[in-house]
Design a protein around this nucleic acid. Sequence first.
DNA 1: TATGAATGAGATTTCATTCAT
DNA 2: GATGAATGAAATCTCATTCAT
Lengths: 214, 214, 214, 214
Amino acid sequence: MHDCPFAKRWSRRKAARPQEILEAALDLFAEKGYAATKMGDIAKRAGVTCGTPYRYFKSKEEIFASLIRELVLPKLALGESLLAEPDVGAAARLRTFLFTWWTQIGESRLSALPKLMVAEAKNFPEVAELYQKEFIQPGQALLKRVVEDGIARGEFRAVPVEHAVQTLMSPVVMLMIWQHSLVPCFDPDADPRSYLEAMLDLVLHGLMPRSAIA
Amino acid sequence: MHDCPFAKRWSRRKAARPQEILEAALDLFAEKGYAATKMGDIAKRAGVTCGTPYRYFKSKEEIFASLIRELVLPKLALGESLLAEPDVGAAARLRTFLFTWWTQIGESRLSALPKLMVAEAKNFPEVAELYQKEFIQPGQALLKRVVEDGIARGEFRAVPVEHAVQTLMSPVVMLMIWQHSLVPCFDPDADPRSYLEAMLDLVLHGLMPRSAIA
Amino acid sequence: MHDCPFAKRWSRRKAARPQEILEAALDLFAEKGYAATKMGDIAKRAGVTCGTPYRYFKSKEEIFASLIRELVLPKLALGESLLAEPDVGAAARLRTFLFTWWTQIGESRLSALPKLMVAEAKNFPEVAELYQKEFIQPGQALLKRVVEDGIARGEFRAVPVEHAVQTLMSPVVMLMIWQHSLVPCFDPDADPRSYLEAMLDLVLHGLMPRSAIA
Amino acid sequence: MHDCPFAKRWSRRKAARPQEILEAALDLFAEKGYAATKMGDIAKRAGVTCGTPYRYFKSKEEIFASLIRELVLPKLALGESLLAEPDVGAAARLRTFLFTWWTQIGESRLSALPKLMVAEAKNFPEVAELYQKEFIQPGQALLKRVVEDGIARGEFRAVPVEHAVQTLMSPVVMLMIWQHSLVPCFDPDADPRSYLEAMLDLVLHGLMPRSAIA
DNA sequence: TATGAATGAGATTTCATTCAT
DNA sequence: GATGAATGAAATCTCATTCAT
């Protein structure tokens, strides 16, 4: 009846446990949602019994919060370094930014985050605010700088920057979401990278001034 | 009770009940997620007590399924008619298509659907499949025809059609999702329509061949 | 495994339930203590299933608090009326006070309260404060008035009033506690009333001035 | 670890461990009750970690039982010697008995016992029986002898002895209980000894025959 | 038909106890 | 011996669902 006990006893005990539990939780939250994920599921996937997660986290809710704080925010440093690169032109920088975002996050287990945050933000407003302030806004600011820079140099048309940034982000975010959903709006067998390529080609083309095309 | 004069009030609503319950459920599922929404909440928002939904639906799960079948799919007819319009050029048709999508669905309570389906598709695979087959695929097919048409006429560049379709859809879908989330990646005070405008300007520009620009 | 389900279905549903649950809880708390009393025990004794108490009380803790507030405090009015009686002399009044206390509370299920409060006061400080302020202090004040009155009239010796009050209360309180304990310090077959008689005889004798004796 | 110079410290305490654990348990049981006291709390207060008590005691229940057997019963010898004293009159002997009881037990950590036993006797009937037989009954027998002696000599009135004994004990027991409760029925700042004095004055007075007063 | 008290399976969480280190 | 991570039984509490009224 209880699905708590497993046939295992006294496996290793280590400082790796919290990380393992968070990763198990992230996978399951992304798959089933927060509420539909049972603590026992998390424990089982982490290879422990049902009481063990509570040695490391006060509650299920704290697992959720820790997951954002400890798994996601550290990734932010990545984006920062993108702009420190040598000058390669705005279009190339945009390309690099979006592809790095995809390979570093979209192809890791963290790709689950957008789906998770979209679904649960209303239920965990403080965590959502953290995610927004520490992850989305800085990321958008970076992207904005690239676009503004491109406009200033005449590489891009003078489009409304805010809207362009969102238009650029949307496909990447949607791609991550669709990866974790049974409702893909793109061919699930297609290569996400080639989709990104095509998308980039389209919007970069849209950003270019006539002069650059002619 | 007995022959109280308010009895009429109840019978008047009787026919509307199932619809009211589904709408209440849609709102709440979108806000909190399926699992976190209590049957009692649905009942209360529909203006009935907790036993009443069971007169019309076998279970919570059936409410979810009915919601997709009876609230969403009927909307599909809308899109079909879009292409029956007189010939106005591919760009204008694209514009019309996306704006109609937005005003008819994005500005209605149905804008909750993408968030809901993304979050719950894995937990309700049959419903997700229905949604996918009856709503997304036909919609994409419509959009695809518009793009192909535009390419055939020389109005658009010869881009990969599938990817272009997805790139066109992403911002609209994301806009709907963000509307129902505390994690907006766009200025929540901004007018969604002006965002759509800017997005369309960008991608239409990206679709145009050099000749059209020069 | 779960001791929650009982073989009963759809018994009466009434406004009597909360009271029944509180009485069941009082009996069990007094018998086993708060922590050792399971919610299922309370439900079973109240003749309902394990989920029912939660329709009326938010938590086990609230049952405890309500029990004091709703079962005990109303009894206080009793004591108030004792002093309104016609003048019968201080000794007779003392006798009446202590005997009424015993018959009204000591011989009712409320006799469990001293044991319960002594055991749990530290774990529920706010409830303990309520009990202290609303029950004990007023009761002591009443008793104090009787003693002071007796001294003023020359019926009693001029003893320290506070201490006399406590000395008078102790046997009654201990009698209630012993009734609910396996550690009786008096013969459990003895009649509590005859113990009260003897005790009263002793202390009344102790209160009398020489003149009254000689 | 290895040959650290503090190793001595541990071995020095080794022999004292069981006693320290029992004392920690007594304090906590008295404060929170048996069930609400966690083994980890006991360990922590005893200055060890949560596994250590199990080296000395089979279970929490055994700690409770040992506590009574090893901490309390040895104190009983004290009372025995009280009556071996030279003849000083019944009243003085009563006074000595109660004051010694108070100073030896009431002012030690063992004052927690009445509260603890009252609260838990029903949950640990064998321990309660032990406590009753080995502690309370012998104590009452001692007190009874003093009272009977006093009556035989004409120092006390011919009161019912059993009831008098209980009346004499009640205030002392209550005083111990109130010391460990947030529900004191006496001024918590008052000196317990002066309360005992006053109480004794009252009941001794009540015990005296007319002749002794006049 | 509608109500809402009652049900009871199942989820989260606690903690006495074990045992590898 | 001592430690404290891990265990897992058992407790509290929730809520989808039922059904007497």
